[in-house]
Design a binder for these strands. Structure first.
Length: 427
RNA sequence: GAGCCUGUAGCUCAACGGCAGAGCGCUACACUGUGGAUGUAGAUGUUGAGGGUUCGAAACCCUUCAGGCUCCCCA
């Protein structure tokens, strides 16, 4: 046991069943992206550490990402996020790109953190960004892309919701409470942590951090006011656009969404599963300005979001929304009657494949019973057998494995017969 | 970086100081030209590893490794 080399901590092995889930997420994410006209792109998986150090702070990068020195002595890191690479690639072609740029990506990322429910050290992330436009309507489109995905994987508005807030709105509210600028980041963290603490503990924590009793009371009023968005022109327009896009049933204003992040400047949003078995967000994003400042581009505004595969994977499994796993991608099994007919079976399989079917052929002459059991395990839908009788008469026995009916037909129409069966019971 | 919990058959778990077991899965047979169901039989273990206590350890103690959950953090 201990002799076996284990997978690296925080990584996952993708057996075919898990791979099917990952591909399901990839397909649905891609389809949601393409339906809004987004182009697929990608960046290097390895980047120089400076790319991240500039924005995120070197300490964070060194502590929470996989970094190493390559053979040439360069200090590199496995990408922990995509946005800096996006910024560089956009800046490099800023003069020739047609804006607004709409890009999406799905690929691997690495963060050196403690693995726990919903978090691994190696994960896949879907990123969607629109650059070059600064409007609430653009923000609404990004949210709509996210909702389109949630809807397409079968999550209902009762099961998943996107919570939206606006940084500028919160800033104006904090102004009204006379919360000084240098306290804003700390207050953001307070808001983020509120749901994890008891009300009494949170009150104490806020007062401890130097806010006055009246500021605390004011803060609680703000965080409990779900009509606050009506005072904000950007959010009013955002919700009108969401309505027009047909996704408003999934979206609601929530003053508790802050996303403690440095670079968000306007709209911010996070999607949650409502039952809350996973306390992490399914996806999150928002509007950012000055994206290109650190990489030498002209000022450019953007809006985007990211979704990790881990949390959504757990949610889909817990809610029973993962499609049934069919082990064999080939719905047809050609059996091998005996050793003398093995090559005949191979010929028949080849014929069926040439007609466009996906075909599995048993590779040795074992008992038919075993081959049919194998077909069953692989969830094959049709079995085709050529025994001595069929071989002598130029025929093939085609069996529908779903209802058990078998017909013996001319060899030439075997493919046609199989296709008819599949047309009825599904591929 | 800190805390709590768990490592026993391929999987899920029982045995909680006294012969290491069950269910599922697997293999074979019933069924020598046909799957799912059922029945019968069978195989499978250095109880994560190392040390200690004991007449006796899967169990108790120590060390170590691995995993899970939480705090922290979350670009």
């Amino acid at each position: 046991m201990t002799q076996k080399i284990q997978p690296v901590k925080g990584t996952r092995e993708f057996y075919p069943e898990q791979m099917a889930l990952r591909n399901f997420i990839y397909e649905k994410a891609g389809e949601a992206s393409r339906s809004f006209g987004y182009q697929e792109w990608d960046a290097p998986f390895i980047e120089s550490i400076e790319l991240y150090a500039a924005k995120s702070g070197e300490e964070l990068v060194k502590k929470q990402s996989f970094t190493f020195t390559d053979r040439g002595g360069d200090f590199v890191t496995l990408r922990p996020e995509l946005t800096p690479s996006l910024a560089r690639m956009i800046a490099a072609r800023q003069g020739e790109l047609t804006f607004p740029v709409r890009w999406w990506s799905f690929g691997p990322f690495w963060r050196y953190e403690q693995p726990q429910k919903g978090r691994t050290r190696e994960f896949f992330q879907w990123n969607v960004d629109m650059l070059g436009v600064n409007s609430p309507e653009a923000d609404a489109e990004l949210i709509a892309v996210g909702v389109t995905f949630l809807r397409s994987v079968g999550l209902s508005p009762a099961q998943a919701a996107v919570h939206v807030n606006n940084r500028r709105l919160m800033d104006s509210q904090f102004d009204a409470l006379d919360i000084p600028q240098e306290k804003r980041l700390e207050v953001s963290n307070m808001v983020d942590r509120r749901s994890k603490m008891t009300p009494a503990n949170w009150d104490a924590y806020v007062l401890d951090s130097g806010l006055s009793q009246s500021q605390l009371e004011g803060l609680k009023v703000i965080l409990g006011d779900f009509d606050l968005w009506k005072k904000n022109d950007e959010l009013t327009r955002l919700f009108a656009a969401l309505e027009a896009l047909g996704v408003s049933e999934y979206v609601k204003f929530d003053p508790n969404i802050m996303r403690g992040l440095l670079y968000y400047t306007g709209t911010v949003f996070e999607a949650f599963e409502t039952s809350g078995s996973v306390r992490r967000a399914i996806l999150g994003g928002g509007r950012y300005d000055n994206l290109l400042a650190d990489v030498g581009g002209q000022p450019l505004s953007g809006v985007g979001f990211a979704m990790g595969d881990v949390v959504i994977g757990i949610v889909l499994q817990e809610l029973g929304l993962v499609p049934e796993f069919v082990p064999s991608p080939a719905p047809v099994l050609v059996t091998v009657f005996d050793a003398s007919l093995l090559l005949e079976a191979y010929r028949l399989a080849a014929e069926l494949r040439r007609s466009g079917l996906r075909v599995l052929c048993y590779p040795e002459p074992v008992k038919l019973q075993k081959q049919f059991k194998f077909a069953d395990k692989m969830k094959a839908r049709v079995a085709v057998t050529v025994g001595p009788d069929e071989a002598a008469n130029g025929q093939a026995a085609v069996k529908n494995l779903v209802n058990g009916e078998q017909v013996v037909v001319k060899r030439e129409v075997a493919a046609e017969t199989v296709k008819k069966i599949l047309a009825v019971i599904g591929p």
